[in-house]
Design a protein around this nucleic acid. Structure first.
Length: 590
RNA sequence: GGCUCCUUAGCUCAACUGGAUAGAGCAACUGCCUUCUAAGCAGUAGGUUUCAGGUUCGAGUCCUGAAGGAGUCACCA
């Protein structure tokens, strides 16, 4: 398939050459989509080239336009000030449409290399919440995008399964659990364990209050607390692999994993590689020792090991404590090494909140100083926190939005709304349950992915369950509508389109089809799924406008009818594909 | 306090990386179902892009400063 933009770039470059004897690399020629209020498909801005053409903006645009008019791709042009608006010829658009046959292969990149995307990374002491959902959806969508763009992707999940917080849950269960299990209580495993984490906190605070009432300061109370000391002792026992503690730890974690699995399944996210901090937390020490030996790091008098990042505009960072134990950074250095040794990736993406911007800046810098082959490939995909209308989510104040509850709520709203519209006759119960899932989860996913990942976003519960306007539901509806038209027309195969005159909306649709490849590549490069949201929304909106303005099945001119059916078919295929990249499914009817 | 990021319509978000008259959705208002799905379409209204300077043909976008907000600066992860 010839590429319209590339062709135009070459024509313009050629025009500069023959008209002005100026050499301009075709790739550097920027063609913008012409704004709605002007006539044209693509706009070339001549201002930056005036020094070389030595002509007024209008005249420069005029002669360039005149010159490229000789090419088939160029239907017409108009000039407004320094803007050359180019109309691509109908024939070229039709050719483009006819060439667009294999939608699965369309826009795919190839041979980009291998990349690991680490995301989700939960703690095993409590269930997932809204913040995790954003992380999971982002990680999954970005993985899809990279894959589409030609990367071999390894989706990884580094589970924080150890530490004092898990010991708190364990201790609380031991003391107050009475042998209850998720089975015996009918609770989801992660919620079950989470409830003991909450229980610990409650008991601990009661103890602190009692101690403080007897005259202790807060700090004294915290150090005296029998409960907290028991938790600490338990962590120590765990580190010594005490059989009993270890068994309890494994049992409780397995409950949590059962629960997580349900949530992940429902969210539709997957992983190729699991990592557990219990297996990685001791790593990295020998790398630090090596760095010390090579003079990249230094040791302080107390025996602790540091890296000096002041020359890089940062400060000194601890790598090993005086007692030789490792810290978060040490562990992450070790994990990075393992990841690389196992998969030899060219790039390693960490989907982690922006509160860790500094941490990852340091991690990358250290890897670079150590001369690690994977150092430059470290990329922190930093995303903003999710706020609620009341402000930040705080687990202590119980304002955390639980992932499972939220999904339930979304699906329920979908069910209710679908019931109100009463368009479900002929659907059996399996199809209906499926439909509610598709709509409810789609709405949630789109709502979270729509916003630029880097930005902090507001989660408004009322707005999030909205199923109108810029929502997944609107887009899914457009898909179902396309399918309905195709069913009614009995159309299954693409037809070749002959010569036909295009109206504005038909042309816009083809132009959108054409831009899919560019938009997905851009989204993959910037690892920004919101660009796909924008694209697919624009596509759906344009199709709906077209649908309302022009008859499709009732069109009497056969060529015209074939064209419109083909537009309908390709629209549905690209909507489905775009949404699939985002992890959102589509219904055949709704 | 140092560093990093944010501030666009009443609300939630865009603006293709410096281009034309800053666009969508929600909320409000007006029309459109005997016609391929009205979860839709067409339209009205809504803006000193936080403020003050600067850079240039041209600034929401770049530079400086101010105000407001967030994050981080742990021998937590």
């Amino acid at each position: 398939m010839s590429d319209i933009i590339v062709d135009l770039q070459h024509h313009l470059s050629g025009a500069f050459h023959s008209l002005f004897q100026v050499e301009i690399e075709p790739e550097t020629i920027k063609l913008d989509k012409t704004r709605k209020e002007f006539e044209g498909d693509y706009t070339f801005v001549v201002f930056p080239y005036l020094k070389q053409t030595m002509m007024k903006p209008e005249d420069t645009a005029q002669v360039l336009g005149d010159h490229i008019l000789q090419f088939d791709e160029v239907g017409s042009y108009n000039v407004i000030k320094g803007f050359l608006n180019i109309n691509v010829s109908d024939g070229t658009w039709i050719d483009t449409l006819n060439a667009l046959k294999d939608i699965e292969a369309y826009g795919r990149g190839k041979d980009k290399g291998k990349v690991m995307v680490e995301y989700s990374s939960p703690n095993t002491n409590k269930p997932l919440h809204l913040g995790h959902i954003r992380n999971n959806l982002l990680g999954y969508a970005v993985s899809n995008l990279l894959e589409h763009d030609g990367w071999e992707v390894v989706k990884a999940n580094l589970v924080n399964d150890r530490g004092i917080h898990i010991c708190k849950s364990m201790l609380a269960w031991q003391r107050f659990g009475n042998g209850e299990t998720p089975e015996s209580t009918g609770m989801k495993g992660d919620h079950f364990v989470g409830s003991y984490y909450v229980r610990f906190d409650k008991e601990y605070r009661a103890e602190l209050e009692q101690l403080m009432a007897s005259g202790m300061t807060k700090e004294e109370a915290e150090n005296t607390s029998e409960l907290m000391n028991a938790a600490r002792a338990m962590l120590l026992k765990w580190e010594q692999k005490d059989a009993e503690v270890y068994a309890l730890w494994q049992k409780m974690n397995s409950w949590v994993y059962d629960g997580f699995e349900v949530t992940y399944d429902r969210l539709g996210v997957k992983f190729d590689q699991m990592y557990y901090e219990s297996e990685t937390y001791l790593l990295g020490k020998d790398i630090v020792e090596q760095g010390l030996h090579d003079g990249v790091f230094f040791r302080k008098d107390d025996g602790s090991v540091w890296v000096d990042l002041e020359p890089d505009g940062l400060d000194e960072k601890l790598l090993l404590r005086a007692d030789g134990t490792s810290v978060y950074m040490t562990q992450d250095i070790g994990t990075a090494e393992i990841k690389y040794n196992q998969h030899h990736t060219d790039k390693s993406v960490y989907v982690v909140g922006n509160e860790q911007d500094y941490h990852f800046k340091v991690l990358k810098l250290i890897a670079q100083k150590l001369g690690k082959p994977y150092a430059d490939g470290i990329f922190h995909l930093s995303y903003g926190m999710v706020d609620l209308p009341e402000g930040k989510m705080k687990s202590r104040e119980g304002t955390v939005v639980d992932a499972d509850d939220l999904m339930d709520e979304m699906i329920n709203t979908a069910k209710q709304r679908t019931g109100e519209l009463g368009k479900t006759e002929g659907m059996d119960s399996v199809e209906l349950v499926d439909l509610y899932d598709t709509i409810g989860l789609g709405a949630l996913k789109y709502y979270l992915l729509r916003v630029d990942a880097a930005k902090r976003m507001l989660f408004n519960p009322e707005e999030s369950i909205d199923l109108q306007g810029n929502t997944a539901t609107f887009i899914q509806y457009t898909y179902a509508r396309c399918k309905s038209v195709l069913r009614a027309g009995g159309i299954e195969e693409r037809t070749f389109i002959g010569e036909v005159e295009l109206n504005d909306l038909e042309r816009s649709l083809i132009q959108l089809f054409y831009s899919f490849a560019e938009r997905t590549a851009e989204a993959a490069e910037s690892m920004n799924p919101s660009l796909i949201c924008q694209y697919v929304y624009e596509l759906a909106k344009t199709y709906n406008g077209f649908y309302n303005a022009h008859p499709i099945l009732k069109e009497t001119d056969e060529n015209q009818r074939n064209l419109r059916l083909t537009l309908t078919m390709v629209s549905s295929e690209l909507i489905e594909k775009s949404l699939r990249l985002l992890g959102i499914s589509v219904p055949e009817r709704m």
